[in-house]
Amino acid sequence: MKIDIQDHILVPTHEIMTEDEIADEFSDVEYDFKDLPKIRSEDPVVKAIGAKPGDVLRITRESQTAGVFVTYRIVED
C-alpha cells in the first residue's frame, strides 16, 4: 500500500513556487534566493510533489509561536 507522507503531522505543506511568485517574493530582500536553506532532490516530499532541482518550495509550517509560519527552501541539484 502506498501512503501519502504529506498527510503526516510532522510534514508541513510544501508547494512549488512559480517563476512569478519567486520574482515577487524575493525582489526586495538583501539575499539571493539561491542561498535559501536547501532541500535534497531525493527528499521524499520533493519526490511526492514532483519538484525539480532549482525549484523553490514554499513551506507553510504550523508554528508554536507564530501560529502559521511561511518559509522557503531551494531544491538542491
Binding site: I5, H8, L10, V11, H14, I39, V45, R61, R73
Partner: peptide, 9 residues
C-alpha cells in the same frame, strides 16, 4: 521517510 522538514519538527 518523511523528509527534512519533518526531521526539523
Amino acid at each position: 521517510v518523511l523528509g527534512i522538514e519533518a526531521a526539523r519538527q
